[in-house]
Amino acid sequence: MSFSNKAIEALPQAQSIPLTPISPLHAWFCLVMHTLVFAVLAAVSAFFLWQPWFDLVFLRDVAPYTLGATLVLFVLFAGYRFVANRKLAYGVREHDITLRAGWYWRSITTQPLLRVQHIEVERGPLERRAGLATLALFSAGGELHTLSIPGLTLARAEALRQFVLAYKAEQHVDQGASDV
């Protein structure tokens, strides 16, 4: 690799950004949502296992396996997400916002504010009750790569939103960004 960068010591390093953990409540909220979704899936299998009205032998025979698979997947998926969600932490620098995520599959993602096209503070029903909010930073990288920071206090989310808006207002030369 011919990449050389003599002044590397002087560059700001993402590794050393101080990170703040998000609210531990977020992991519990996600657990509740996952439980609901998997409960519906399990209910479908359970229905075919015990329903007395129709003569669906094949579905009845298959149902125990799908029910078992649903439960195993639930434990693996929701369990992993619960642990991983508790690891979520974010850091704010002058020019970017960084999110650390994951427990086994760890990731660090940095969104340069210059590339933010649109910003939203979102609140689900559970978040509203707990006074929490999610900050979503949209870039031209597409929906899949929206940087979402959940489990912020509403005041913190609003303050971050203002910070990003102020940054954007300063950068007159910005490109493509419009509907901030």
Partner: peptide, 22 residues
């Protein structure tokens, strides 16, 4: 080490020089 250097260098390039992407 290379990955981290690339990451920091690219962010620096974007944030310091504000290059257009479109």
């Amino acid at each position: 080490a290379q990955a981290r250097a690339m990451y920091d260098f690219a962010l620096f390039e974007i944030e310091a020089k504000s290059p257009n992407w479109m």
